[in-house]
Nucleic acid binder design. Structure first.
Lengths: 63, 63
DNA sequence: GCTTTGTGATAGGTTTCCTTTACATCGCGT
DNA sequence: ACGCGATGTAAAGGAAACCTATCACAAAGC
């Protein structure tokens, strides 16, 4: 499951640590999700959508 | 994380087994998600949204 | 040079998701 | 009364999603 995390984070000039703090997860989790190691849980996906002010469907892509 | 699975399933007159087959998961998984035992993974949430033709945000509710 | 910041990766451990198998109940039709 | 579809639940095991701690490295600044 592909995602646009890295781009969205760059648009806001946030470091991985900055995003991790906003999501209340570890920096390693953010890194793992960005690099496609695994997909976030649904609750975390909702939190990600919230901090970016977008819909889950617009951040995570099927395919 | 609350969800409207039971209602959506009832609207379509699908049994848990019917939905499980469409999602390609076990019936117990559908039952567990419906009864709030746990949340689906993100990929499964996308499949659920697909079979109902809705957005994830309209099936699973924050709060 | 040295230090800081950002990023990628790994090892080891816990929790959550999902499976198979199994059992109990309830409602409905025969 | 009997069978059957639908549902709820539980145990045991594996896979996936988290965690902390740690190392490595490149780029930038002083």
């Amino acid at each position: 499951m592909n995602n646009r995390l890295k781009v969205l984070r760059a648009e806001r000039n946030w470091s991985q640590q900055e995003l991790a703090s906003r999501l209340e997860v570890s920096r390693q989790s953010v890194n793992a999700i960005e690099t496609g190691k695994y997909d976030p849980s649904l609750p975390l996906a909702f939190r990600i959508a919230d901090v970016f002010g977008m819909a889950i469907e617009d951040i995570f892509l099927r395919e």
